[in-house]
Design a protein around this nucleic acid. Structure first.
Lengths: 125, 125
DNA sequence: AATGTAATTAACCAACTAGTTAAATACAAA
DNA sequence: TTTGTATTTAACTAGTTGGTTAATTACATT
């Protein structure tokens, strides 16, 4: 599985996103991480394995604890990928582009219909 | 399923990401979209349904064609979510954190001026 | 050595995913 | 009306996912 797919599928689960959120304020043990959830410890352990495989977390070894730490490098790749679509969710861009295009082709503000209306009402800028 | 999970799981597939890439240069029919892939048409149709459910594409109706158009609004939410982790993949922050930690352990009274020691780029491991 | 705590592994299950082929639907053109 | 083209639906399958409980491993403490 490619890295991007690995990253996105790891993020496609609210439990795992919550775990990352928790880890963003510092390392934690598996028990700590499991506490807020109603699911069993093995279930959380599996989620951690998914996050580890996606390299979104790293795990240590301290006595019987396996402390988890966030390691969000893959998120850079993911945001970089998304960045290429920014134009599609920022309408500002579309509007600006349209506006610039309009300026370029029309040279003058010549909105025919509204110009007629304006003339009728005798008001000018 | 929550919107963020829906978005990430839709993106967690290379075929679907390729379809989005194709659509970012303009609308296309299902056949057009399917052409680059070795899989069957129904398979592509299913991928499109996933993208549609995630609201990453919208579909029209023109005669017997169902043209697809990119509609990347959910990506905004996704990047916004990721943004909160930027600190973890930008080493700038790590440096700052190290610096703050250093301050804390040294118990020195706020040497604000030494902030100039901070480097923006380059590595000194 | 025995006990308790942290975490993982094993075995199982239901639901979902990504693909298949074959059949059905919808429309255009002849 | 028949035929061709675009697309979806249906039925099926293999593999994955997200969860469970029970057993096991690993380590610390008593």
């Amino acid at each position: 599985m490619d890295r991007l797919s690995l990253t996105f599928s790891a993020l496609a689960d609210p439990t795992r996103r919550a775990i990352l959120a928790r880890l963003s304020s510092g390392p934690a043990s598996v028990n700590d991480l499991a506490a807020p959830f109603s699911m069993s410890l093995p279930a959380v352990s599996k989620h951690l394995k998914v996050l580890e495989r996606a390299q979104l977390i790293a795990r240590g070894k301290e006595a019987q604890w396996r402390p988890c730490e966030i390691k969000a490098a893959p998120l850079k790749e993911a945001t970089d990928w998304m960045e290429q679509y920014r134009q599609f969710w920022e309408e500002r861009f579309d509007r600006l582009e349209d506006y610039l295009k309009e300026l370029q082709t029309q040279e003058k503000p010549a909105p025919v219909k509204s110009a007629t209306k304006r003339k009728k009402h005798g008001s000018n800028k």
